[in-house]
Amino acid sequence: MIPADEIAKPSHALPFWLSLGLVPLAVAVAMVGGWAVLLMPASTWWLFTVLDRITGKSEENPDPATPEAALGWYRAITLIWFPVQFLLLCWMLWYVPGAEHLSGWEKAGVFFGMGVIAGTIGINYSHELMHQKSRLERWCADLLLAMVLYSHFRSEHLRVHHLWVGTPRDPVTARYNEGFHRFFPRVLVQCHRSAWAAEVAMLARRGLPWWNRANPYWRYGALQGGMLLLAFTLGGWMGVGLFLLQAGVAVWQLELVNYIEHYGLTRRHLGEGRYEHVLPRHSWNASEKASNWLLINLQRHSDHHYKPDRRFPLLQTYDAEEAPQLPLGYPVMTIAAMIPPLWKRIMNPRVRAWRRKFYPDITDWHAYNKGLNPVPGHRTPDQAGA
């Protein structure tokens, strides 16, 4: 176990600040153009995969009792990221639309790279921030999500995903044998619906109508509208188009990660709309060191679901006996997810092995998921009306 005094050292936190290196790279790409536009996706998808091979795995756990005061350097990187990303986006919206040395395709390539930053880093940091109690951190989460027009992700993630992960009621739990290209459009529609329904239901429990000012969708709309207005002010209609491109790429990056985090994993239904508690077995994990630096330990996903407000430097890892492990880190696995035959060849045998290990009494999963109740004593979701 890593002791608290070691965790508190700036040198221990420093690798998680590597994301800042993407900012000068993005500026250089915009100023150079040409084949340099490929550097942004290459740096996040391929460079960190290579670094994973060099640095190996990190399977040692930090002391979970480490006090909050010892985590200042870790908290700082998530807090400064919004102003850093905001200034970078503003500069790009001002500079790129009028840059004569960039062709139309090169401008699109620059903003594709901006979307990779906003999705891989920005949304991931907003995910960390939205789980904290501080109003400042939650506001930073909202602002980062508004920059990619995906503000409802906060409602969906906190009020739907964490409650219903691994069940039919969670849109972002990828079904077994569901390819990403089917998953993605389904999620884009269903997440909006489930997030809205969750917020309206919460207001109703307080005796408030959907149009009450307490509905966070008013804030979401105002922030997103402000970002679109900013894009138009700085870059005109081309700026709006490029802004929408980076937002779309960022959302695609987010949902790729959502897809691999719980693919094919389900919680047992106990009847009457109830499910077993979320356990480490219900998330895919990875211990690759460099990827966890980039993604601030997102790959320790089982522990995040066990204790959602635990800050990222204290997330625990589990061995294969408790939680399923991916063969490689998230960056390379998201690439595999874009090729459904390859993904299914890699992951479907692992899902079947997971089922045999943790749920040996369920012998017909197709029937179980269809509500045909092959398991004595357990009512399935369809039978319970879930």
Rank of each mutant, 00 (worst) to 15 (best):
E255N: 14
W46A: 14
V148S: 05
H12P: 01
P324V: 06
G371V: 12
S58H: 14
T317I: 12
L14V: 07
G377Q: 09
F86K: 06
L234K: 04
W73K: 12
K370T: 00
L188I: 14
P327L: 01
G179R: 08
L230Q: 11
A231V: 02
S283G: 00
A8W: 09
A30L: 08
G241T: 02
M1S: 10
Q224R: 04
L102R: 05
F312M: 06
A69G: 14
E68C: 00
P360S: 09
V110L: 04
F358Y: 15
F358E: 07
Y220T: 03
L229Q: 10
N215P: 03
F180V: 11
A336T: 10
A198L: 08
K289Y: 09
R159D: 13
A290N: 07
I260L: 15
W139A: 02
F111P: 03
L229K: 11
R356D: 13
R159G: 10
A28K: 00
L372C: 03
H269F: 00
K307N: 12
Y150K: 01
V165L: 12
T173Y: 06
L79G: 02
L342E: 05
L38N: 05
D364I: 13
F153M: 03
Q190Y: 04
G33I: 09
V37D: 01
F86G: 00
K370N: 08
G207S: 06
I260Y: 04
L254H: 08
Y318D: 09
V148Y: 01
L14R: 12
S194G: 01
L188T: 07
G221D: 03
P308T: 11
A118K: 05
A174V: 00
V200G: 00
G271E: 07
H12N: 14
R310T: 10
L144E: 05
W196R: 15
R311L: 13
A118E: 12
N212T: 07
N369A: 09
R355A: 03
L93S: 09
G104D: 11
P349K: 08
V50D: 05
H304Q: 13
F183E: 03
L38K: 03
M130C: 13
P313G: 08
V84K: 07
I260W: 04
L145Q: 06
Y318I: 09
L298Q: 14
M202G: 10
Q383D: 12
N258V: 04
L87W: 12
A118N: 15
L79E: 13
G273F: 07
Q85W: 04
F153K: 02
R169Q: 15
L163W: 00
V351S: 07
H161D: 10
R379V: 11
A174L: 02
G329I: 04
P64F: 10
N348G: 01
Y368W: 15
L39I: 13
E59F: 09
M1R: 09
